[in-house]
Amino acid sequence: MRQGMVIDLERCIGCHACEVACEFENGTPPGIAWTRVFMREDGGFPDTRRFFMPTLCMHCKHPACVEVCPTGASYQREDGVVLVDHDKCIGCKACMIACPYDARYFDEGGDYPGMPALTERPGGESNKLIGTVEKCTFCVHRLEKGEEPVCVIVCPTVARVFGDLDNPESAVSRLIKERHGFQIHEELGREPSVYYLSAKSIMLESSPQKDRV
């Protein structure tokens, strides 16, 4: 069993529901979102196209972050989910440098203006995450209850699908096969668990304009 995700770039409309859901689910401070949405525009007027690309921790099969972690705080489960033990993490940030997907964040604390802290974070009142590095956990606390990550269940266009990459009959496996799912930076050999399905509006031409939105 290997937990994995497929993101259909044809369906994504860049609405940020996934980002906001993740923030409330995991109580991240302002400035940190474990899933982010990028936008890319290509072409010249009037032949302009645009697509949106959500990214998150790739839960790599061969995670660079785990390799470089000096304390063993970053580890990988049997089902492929890569996690951080915040009791062991000393916040050295080596993993942040090692990650090719920019998917890790150093937590300095802080609350959203005007909002009380509503989400219980590990450690409760003492918030163990501050001073450590954190990232997407595939909502492992939900997986344990048989529920999918919140980014998957809130997406209005059903752009994200979650499931077992080791099961050829699972929705994720079938989508990867039928729609030629690809990984980002496949050449680095990290073997991400997150695959993407292409979109008609992806033009790989010159003068790209890409932004995190």
Partner: peptide, 25 residues
């Protein structure tokens, strides 16, 4: 403490947009 979509809504099938998800503001 949190808002999610209601899977029993046959229109949205439990999905919700960024505004709805941040409704506690």
């Amino acid at each position: 403490t949190k808002i999610l979509g209601d899977p029993d809504d046959p229109n949205t099938k439990g999905r919700l947009c960024a505004r709805g998800l941040s409704g506690l503001t």
